[in-house]
Design a protein around this nucleic acid. Structure first.
Lengths: 149, 149
DNA sequence: TTATATGCAAACAATTTGCATCCTG
DNA sequence: CAGGATGCAAATTGTTTGCATATAA
């Protein structure tokens, strides 16, 4: 259970297990996608209306420090959070519609390791973000071009 | 000359060539590293003291749109800007001292292209950010551990 | 019981915007 | 000369913090 993992990690860093923390962790687990603090707040308030945004941020920071949560930027100016799943997935972000496509790339990881050795750098985390256009948006752009002719 | 390239690009998108824009572009060119808007302002004001931060941001946005400038996030909560050099370099960011190591990785680009094909995604830009610790910081951490013994 | 977590409101920092004025084309 | 660009100050947005209160251990 993620609950157990959460509790273990929190206790290991001298933290307490509160309703709020459990709730936020469970939301990240259920949704299984990069949520913003605001989105987490909204979802969490359905079950616990008095939750504050400050607590969401504080909890996310804590979970990030324990390594349970991964923090990223996808292009809209806010941090996004997702449960660390350990498979090191990465993201493609469509500049047309904002859609985010996840992918796992073992090959990337090998290349990164090689680079790290070359620069005597020790990698603790990698962020790959491919910007561009998804198939749908490209199709839409095609259509619009046709219309004009 | 970059001046010419700047002028061409700006005109192509219906923009005007002003002292401020020229200055900001030349700073990015000379410094040849990821600067924040504040840093650019500070450098620019040495030559043109009445420059405003708003103009810096507006100019950077414009240069980004024309493809002359690349915008990135390196971990300190502000955007950083660098002249688009076309060789698609990427960054390692040291979590200890903030140092940024640049690297060029042709192999990465190949892998990204393959991924794009697989997901029928069209890549217009790639951001790879490797987080971790540089050699200096690791050495320092070693020393500190020794001290305690 | 006591230190950690919370909620609320206020504080902050980075970026954007409205508007009168300036200047390029 | 007209419309885009600038400077200034005010506004916005996302995130953090201070403090009194609540709660897990």
């Amino acid at each position: 259970m993620a609950e157990t993992r959460l509790e273990r990690k929190l206790r290991a860093t001298g933290g307490r297990i509160t309703q709020q923390r459990r709730l936020i962790a469970s939301i990240l687990q259920q949704q299984n996608r990069h949520l913003s603090a605001e989105e987490i707040l909204e979802l969490a308030r359905r079950q616990y209306p008095r939750l504050s945004l400050a607590t969401v941020y504080r909890t996310l920071r804590r979970l990030k420090e324990t390594g349970l949560v991964r923090e990223l930027r996808l292009g809209d100016d806010c941090y996004r959070y997702e449960l660390e799943r350990g498979e090191g997935h990465q993201h493609m972000v469509c500049l047309g519609c904002g859609k985010v496509i996840e992918f796992v790339c073992d090959h990337c990881q090998e290349v990164h390791s090689d680079l790290a050795v070359q620069h005597s750098f020790e990698i603790t985390g990698a962020r790959v973000k491919l910007l561009g256009y998804c198939a749908d948006c490209r199709a839409r752009m095609q259509d619009q071009t046709k219309e004009k002719n």
